[in-house]
Lab assay of single mutants.
Amino acid sequence: IRCIGVSNRDFVEGMSGGTWVDVVLEHGGCVTVMAQDKPTVDIELVTTTVSNMAEVRSYCYEASISDMASDSRCPTQGEAYLDKQSDTQYVCKRTLVDRGWGNGCGLFGKGSLVTCAKFTCSKKMTGKSIQPENLEYRIMLSVHGSQHSGMIVNDTGYETDENRAKVEVTPNSPRAEATLGGFGSLGLDCEPRTGLDFSDLYYLTMNNKHWLVHKEWFHDIPLPWHAGADTGTPHWNNKEALVEFKDAHAKRQTVVVLGSQEGAVHTALAGALEAEMDGAKGKLFSGHLKCRLKMDKLRLKGVSYSLCTAAFTFTKVPAETLHGTVTVEVQYAGTDGPCKIPVQMAVDMQTLTPVGRLITANPVITESTENSKMMLELDPPFGDSYIVIGVGDKKITHHWHRSGSTIGKAFEATVRGAKRMAVLGDTAWDFGSVGGVFNSLGKGIHQIFGAAFKSLFGGMSWFSQILIGTLLVWLGLNTKNGSISLTCLALGGVMIFLSTAVSA
């Protein structure tokens, strides 16, 4: 259960009878995928790494000078000259100064003066180019299975845990398959586009800190620079940016070097996208990844198990997540596992009318040892309800109150669905055939309105939902006002479609 501690969480529900669903994975976010007769899966884009970055340009932001020398000439005696002028490691300046009897010249006039100092770069920052084909995306998957609280967001041991898996995709191999043991396998067909235009970005490294910066900004930095990788004795261009020549006297000129420019660069980098280094690879934390999940090989585990009949206890007080759902960790005293956990939410304890829904599909106890633990997640209705676990006299209950409203949740879900469709863009549509167009249209309606429909009408039977949709269509056909007619027709059509397409 990876997503319960992530604030940016998206719930995606598969269409009834569908074998695939489109998701948008982004750094700092987590996606929970639910479908009829399929286990619930949490998917998170953990890291995006980039390798084989080529150094484009380096800037010196802290330097020192040494070996200063000057040469001067009297008027009419030609130009002052130093051998160091031809050495690229030196920074030199030529000027004219007033000369006369007082400073060793027989004539009054302008004399030539040249001053040089050896330039040494102490600290530099480097910009590297990123090729999209060198990106690698690491995705962690977790099935809502027989897990306890100690396994949440624990990325170790996934090789031997059938509840978890790690997959890596690249532009050259965008397809992967996550093996989930008894739950089958989940196929991923990803489109490795981060949403960032790397043709316009460089990877900047300064003092063990890293950013993504725009090329134009990078090339306009007014500091000494050299092109390409460091060859040991780089040729620094624009050395004068960190060196200041003071007022010249008759035979000498003082040279000083400016202080470190790291603070000024940090100020200019305010708002830039931060990154990290992992050995020789860069780690990015921006952008998104679009994936199509193929769920035809994914299956529920323990459908044929019998119900657990022994007593359950709450190991922890049920807690609310950031998303309005409830996490419950229970301990089973029996030894008759594997068995299914009898769990439901009810409005009252007399009729036990089921409300809400299970995020953890078909929760089971897989071990036959005593005191096995299991964590599950529920989506309670707004208002008061009861969490009921167990059967008969051994069942345990917990009162729950959820604040908020169904309308607010439906609106929030619609906005999130619209954002998801905007990110998917043209990849969500198939114009290759008439059937493809209608299929894409259905998927689009489901992406945007599916979660809201589930919130508003999830407790009704599909037949009642179709009746309401048919009534809206009838009202649309018999209303003389054009805008009201079109609105009723659209709402009725969407409702009829979703009542037959969205899983219960």
Rank of each mutant, 00 (worst) to 15 (best):
422 A>I: 15
482 G>Q: 09
43 I>Q: 08
388 V>E: 00
81 Y>M: 10
29 G>V: 01
31 V>G: 00
213 V>R: 02
347 V>S: 00
74 C>K: 09
448 I>R: 04
474 W>E: 05
17 G>Q: 06
353 T>R: 14
197 D>V: 07
68 M>K: 02
52 N>I: 06
410 A>E: 03
463 F>W: 14
463 F>Y: 14
130 I>A: 08
214 H>P: 02
315 T>F: 02
190 C>W: 11
137 Y>C: 12
160 T>V: 15
41 V>M: 12
343 V>A: 15
442 G>K: 10
434 V>K: 09
337 G>R: 10
313 T>F: 00
46 V>G: 11
439 N>H: 13
493 G>K: 12
82 L>I: 15
107 L>D: 05
262 E>W: 12
153 V>Y: 06
80 A>S: 01
419 K>F: 11
374 M>F: 03
472 L>N: 06
252 R>W: 06
41 V>W: 06
222 P>I: 10
141 L>S: 02
331 Q>L: 04
100 G>P: 03
371 N>V: 00
14 G>Q: 08
18 G>H: 02
173 S>Y: 05
92 C>A: 04
468 I>L: 14
314 F>S: 08
187 G>V: 14
250 A>N: 08
139 I>C: 05
185 S>N: 14
475 L>D: 10
446 H>K: 09
358 L>Q: 07
258 L>W: 08
401 H>N: 01
213 V>H: 08
84 K>H: 14
435 G>E: 05
131 Q>G: 06
172 N>T: 02
57 R>A: 12
280 A>F: 00
133 E>W: 09
477 L>G: 02
493 G>I: 04
465 Q>Y: 04
255 V>Q: 03
295 M>E: 05
63 A>I: 10
144 H>D: 07
339 C>E: 08
46 V>S: 10
7 S>C: 02
228 G>V: 00
201 L>D: 00
291 C>D: 06
38 K>I: 06
378 L>E: 07
9 R>T: 07
474 W>H: 06
332 Y>T: 07
39 P>M: 11
157 G>I: 15
487 T>P: 12
51 S>T: 15
352 L>N: 15
410 A>G: 01
344 Q>H: 14
468 I>N: 02
493 G>F: 03
360 T>K: 08
439 N>I: 07
295 M>H: 10
87 D>Q: 09
81 Y>V: 11
58 S>A: 15
503 S>N: 13
470 T>L: 10
4 I>W: 12
367 E>P: 00
236 W>Y: 06
440 S>P: 10
143 V>C: 05
241 A>W: 13
340 K>L: 01
486 L>A: 14
249 H>W: 11
24 V>F: 08
497 F>D: 12
492 G>R: 10
93 K>Q: 15
35 A>E: 00
466 I>T: 11
384 D>P: 05
358 L>A: 10
254 T>Y: 03
209 K>S: 07
270 A>V: 15
48 T>W: 10
332 Y>R: 03
433 S>C: 02
233 T>C: 02
474 W>Y: 15
301 K>F: 10
386 Y>Q: 05
211 W>C: 09
7 S>E: 11
472 L>C: 14
186 L>A: 01
329 E>F: 09
165 A>D: 10
479 T>R: 00
41 V>C: 02
390 G>D: 07
125 M>T: 12
452 A>R: 03
344 Q>D: 05
92 C>P: 01
202 Y>I: 12
248 A>M: 11
460 M>H: 12
144 H>E: 10
400 W>C: 13
105 C>M: 11
484 I>P: 02
446 H>G: 02
240 E>W: 02
205 T>R: 08
14 G>T: 04
62 E>T: 05
116 C>G: 05
328 V>F: 05
221 I>N: 08
133 E>M: 11
366 T>S: 13
124 K>R: 07
417 G>F: 09
366 T>M: 14
339 C>V: 02
407 I>D: 07
58 S>M: 04
442 G>F: 08
11 F>W: 11
124 K>Q: 14
375 M>G: 06
417 G>N: 08
120 T>I: 06
399 H>I: 00
102 G>I: 03
321 T>N: 07
250 A>D: 03
398 H>S: 00
374 M>H: 02
40 T>G: 03
